[in-house]
């Protein structure tokens, strides 16, 4: 009559509710406080009492659910489906999907963005939102009919016009934002070197792709995952280190034409150096004449 699952959780409930009451009284409760959830009297330590009470409630609810479901035994579920014997779920009923992994990356981005920058946070949330939509549609399409091909077609008919532009924009956004944080953290020379190396890698990969397309295609996911990890770790490190120091020009609109964080920059303001100054004044003179 009483199922094993019900008995386990109900005993858990009895133990926990007893523990809550005993704990309530022994930690300073009075009157009937621990018996009436603090209605009449104190319950002692509120934290422990409250948590024990919550655990007891949950145990009771689970035990009641399990007895209602008859422990979700195969026989009970078969009866619910009006079949003699419950079908064991097919081995490959659920096809492989990228979305769980992308969702984890989305949550990771949200977490980093919460600390690092609101834009990254929003980007992470957008990724999670995207995953919710895609995952839901995939799950729906998997079960819409018994024909796998038809399911695929139905899904693509609804989703392809939306997902291709959105995914493209999102991928570019993630790369640009995360990479910019890293580049703002490393030194100016380091940033130049890093971008050069990345450019060379992309060029090399493109060359390999042209020469051996099959081989290159095989490594696309591997490289994508590796890049995501590098960006995530780089993002965390960039958050911790912060941006490098930038030297901004103090005044004069002309000076903004030149980088001021190098020694050469100071030379542009040197009145002794006639050529450079002349060029400057020449430009401004011309513009003033034209105006």
């Amino acid at each position: 009559m009483f199922t094993a699952g019900f008995k386990f959780f109900f005993k858990l409930f009895v133990v926990l509710i007893t523990a809550a009451i005993v704990y309530g009284y022994t930690s300073g409760g009075n009157h009937v406080g621990p018996l009436s959830v603090g209605w009449k009297g104190g319950v002692g330590d509120h934290t422990g009492y409250g948590i024990l009470l919550a655990l007891a409630t949950v145990s009771l609810v689970i035990s009641l659910a399990l007895i209602a479901f008859r422990d979700a035994d195969a026989e009970a579920q078969a009866e619910l489906l009006n079949v003699d014997r419950i079908p064991i779920p097919p081995q490959r009923a659920v096809k492989a999907s990228w979305w769980p992994t992308v969702s984890a990356f989305g949550i990771g981005t949200t977490v980093i963005g919460l600390v690092l920058h609101p834009a990254i946070f929003v980007l992470g949330l957008a990724t999670v939102g995207l995953v919710v939509v895609e995952w839901t549609m995939d799950a729906w399409a998997d079960r819409v009919t018994g024909d796998t091909k038809a399911n695929r077609m139905l899904r693509n008919r609804i989703m392809a016009p939306i997902e291709i532009p959105v995914l493209g924009a999102l991928a570019v956004g993630i790369v640009v934002l995360a990479a910019s944080r890293i580049l703002l953290t490393v030194s100016a020379l380091g940033a130049v070197l890093a971008t050069s190396v990345i450019a060379v890698i992309i060029l090399a990969y493109a060359s390999v792709y042209v020469a051996w397309p099959e081989l290159a295609r095989k490594f696309i996911p591997e490289l994508a995952i590796l890049a995501c990890f590098v960006l995530l770790v780089g993002g965390v490190l960039a958050a911790i280190k912060g941006e490098r120091e930038f030297h901004h020009p103090e005044s004069s609109s002309d000076s903004t034409l030149y980088e001021t964080d190098t020694d050469d920059a100071s030379e542009t303001h040197n009145p002794i150096d006639g050529n450079i100054d002349e060029n400057h004044s020449g430009i401004s003179d011309t513009s003033s004449v034209e105006s």
Partner: peptide
């Protein structure tokens, strides 16, 4: 596409989602 002409999906355990 008429989905009614296609076979129904294989039934799965009805209680799984509820327990989850």
């Amino acid at each position: 596409m008429k989905t009614t002409s296609l076979p129904s999906p294989v039934p799965t355990r009805p209680r799984t989602v509820l327990i989850g």
